[in-house]
């Protein structure tokens, strides 16, 4: 069983390692995290605003940034600095913005804890042993025996 788990883990790692990104894929992916700032409320790569004053420039900058920075976060930080925080629709994983990433999993974890506690409370406890099955107290038993002897007709 342990060997099987190891093989499965290895297969998963190999499968994930094979998913390498090209620059174009990175461009598409990061472009999906940036919003056009022309107030059209659309994602940068989806902006179809006729004569949009910003999207062409932003797309051009994105191509350059993807080429220049190997890390996606650096590209997003570049856009945050150039076009403002609102340009990036995926919150940062540092500082105050970390809160929005942490809250849902924490809530789920809390929910699971509460659920398991409730289930433990609900599940029937093993039945208490009947009084007859309880171990006898020798002192009490001696007293009972004496009482029986003394009251015996």
């Amino acid at each position: 069983m342990k060997r099987l788990a190891e093989i499965l883990l290895l297969c998963c790692a190999v499968a994930l390692l094979m998913g390498a990104d090209s620059e174009n894929v990175r461009f598409q992916r990061i472009g999906g995290k940036i919003m056009c700032t022309c107030s059209c409320a659309q994602m940068l790569l989806q902006c179809n605003h006729v004569g949009c004053p910003n999207s062409d420039q932003m797309i051009h900058q994105l191509r350059g940034a993807v080429h220049e920075y190997s890390n996606d976060q650096d590209v997003l930080n570049f856009f945050r600095k150039t076009w403002g925080v609102a340009a990036v629709v995926e919150p940062d994983t540092h500082g105050f913005e970390l809160l929005v990433w942490v809250l849902p999993p924490v809530a789920i974890a809390l929910g699971l804890v509460v659920l398991f506690v409730k289930i433990r409370q609900w599940r029937p406890r093993p039945a208490q042993p009947a009084p007859a099955d309880l171990p006898l107290d020798p002192h009490l038993e001696a007293l009972r025996s004496r009482a029986r002897q003394e009251t015996e007709l």
């Binding site: 999906g32 609102a86 629709v89 995926e90 919150p91 105050f96 929005v100 809250l103 849902p104 809530a107």
Partner: peptide, 28 residues
């Protein structure tokens, strides 16, 4: 529901706390 509520109301929360609206979009 809670996760979507967090993402939807977070811009309002960030506006109160930090003074600017942080956009939470489709990727998140």
């Amino acid at each position: 529901t809670f996760a979507i509520l967090c993402g939807t109301l977070f811009p309002i929360l960030s506006d109160w706390v930090r003074g600017y609206k942080i956009t939470v979009g489709a990727p998140w």
